[in-house]
Design a protein around this nucleic acid. Structure first.
Length: 230
DNA sequence: ATAGGGATTCTC
DNA sequence: AGAATCCCTATT
């Protein structure tokens, strides 16, 4: 919290560079089909301002979910208490509890009455690595694996259901921003891979086999490998 | 009211 | 390979 020493403001004194918050993506960036938004989120920064300070990571893996017609989506049952955020405006968070113990976070896409969403499945930790490791409670865990999974990243960034429905365009608590040049370039250089969504076999052959999972090729923070490409 | 199961992760 | 663990949804 102590900034650079700058006693008198003389030209030779270290210049205090104001820390600029990463600008949140505007509403319009989310108002498109989840199948487009999912790959577009790769390389973007997920920013979390929590009680233990700021933690951020670069998104390296996502999955697209469509509306009620998508048998793999929670929206398949229509609008319920749990899924209300998905049926709301784009650019909000949909956070849910899975297996009675883990949270996962989605970015709501499309628009009202079009319940598209993108599940954030993995991040490359950038800021607040020590806080992430402390929240994870695994001191031996490699940095690249701290947020390598949809529930792991929620734990690392302290995202829970208190953020369900949060407006990601507000630039508070939780938002999406562009990564800085070298980070974005490194992600872009990796190239993009896609494969079947994880853990949705119950949706049947049609919806369960769609290649709606996207990732940065070969990235060490992927939740798990993608099937080999033919 | 109750049963069935899950967009996961960790340990054995 | 199996447990942990609770809330959601559908059914009785």
């Amino acid at each position: 919290m102590t900034g650079p020493t700058h006693g008198d403001g003389s030209p030779s004194a270290p210049r205090a560079v104001p820390a600029v918050d990463p600008a949140p993506w505007p509403r319009g960036a989310f108002e498109r089909p989840s199948l487009e938004l999912a790959p577009a989120l790769l390389g973007a920064l997920l920013v979390r301002d929590g009680p233990q300070g700021r933690t951020t990571g670069i998104i390296v893996e996502t999955e697209a979910y469509a509306g009620p017609e998508d048998r793999a989506s929670h929206a398949r049952a229509g609008r319920t208490r749990r899924t209300a955020a998905m049926f709301g405006p784009a650019g909000h968070a949909y956070v849910y509890l899975v297996y009675g113990m883990h949270c996962c976070v989605n970015v709501v896409a499309e628009g009202p009455d079009r319940a598209g969403a993108v599940l954030i499945r993995a991040l490359e930790p950038v800021i607040g690595v020590a806080a992430m490791r402390a929240r994870r409670g695994r001191t031996e865990e490699p940095t690249a694996r701290l947020a390598a999974g949809p529930a792991r990243l929620c734990q690392a960034l302290a995202v829970d259901r208190g953020l369900d429905g949060h407006d990601l365009t507000a630039g508070t608590l939780l938002w999406i921003a562009d990564a800085t040049g070298d980070m974005a370039a490194r992600i872009a250089a990796g190239g993009l891979v896609h494969g079947p969504r994880v853990g949705v076999a119950y949706a049947g052959d049609d919806w369960g086999s769609r290649l709606w999972r996207f990732g940065v090729r070969g990235h060490p923070s992927l939740s798990r490998p993608f099937p080999v490409e033919s």
